[in-house]
Amino acid sequence: MINKIWCLSLLLGVLLCCLQDKMEIMSKELLNGTKEAVDLFIVMSGAVAMWSGFMKVAEESGLVDKLSGCMKGVLKVLFPSVPSNHPAMKYISINIAANMLGLGWAATPSGILAVKHLDTLSRQKGKATNDMCMFLVINMSSVQLISINIISCRMKYASADAAEIVLPGIIATAVSTVVSVAACKWCERRSDETYIAS
């Protein structure tokens, strides 16, 4: 899927640039893009490494088990086929907690580890399992409580009440998360049926 989207966006971009005679801008932007990616990687490696360090500390002290213990009830419903003492559950709970608090850089390493551990339960490598789909869907519907970037951006443009969007933001996020999870559960059931039928 990502393969198709990537190719399509590249080709579409190239075609549109040719039509508008913007080929030079495009080449420049492409090179800028690679630089931006490496810059981002440098900024990101430090932050991701630091959070992985603290994550490891929390793991070895047993704090992570406490956290996933608190979230057990919800996780059991969302990820029915993952055993509750499986390491994937730990990383899923760290990831969700980090995302809620807005610690994006802490969410990345735990998210990747969660997918890695979910993959050990997979019977068909290279294909996302039901649990991976659920995990990614929750992740992508954004469960962040306070979006501080947006608030500070509003402040910069002299908003009368920059923080007024916090509650509406939480409501909108809740709706999008609930709808995505429900859609995901529905797809899950439907694909399980075809799986059993075949």
Binding site: I2, C133, M140, S180, A183, C184, C187
Partner: peptide
């Protein structure tokens, strides 16, 4: 998110993820 989380594990088939997320979005 999709490429960052799935690429290190080598998952290519993302099944219904994009569909569901778009509906929610």
């Amino acid at each position: 998110t999709l490429s960052v989380y799935f690429a290190p594990v080598g998952i290519k088939d993302s099944r219904y993820i994009i569909k569901c997320t778009l509906v929610g979005l």
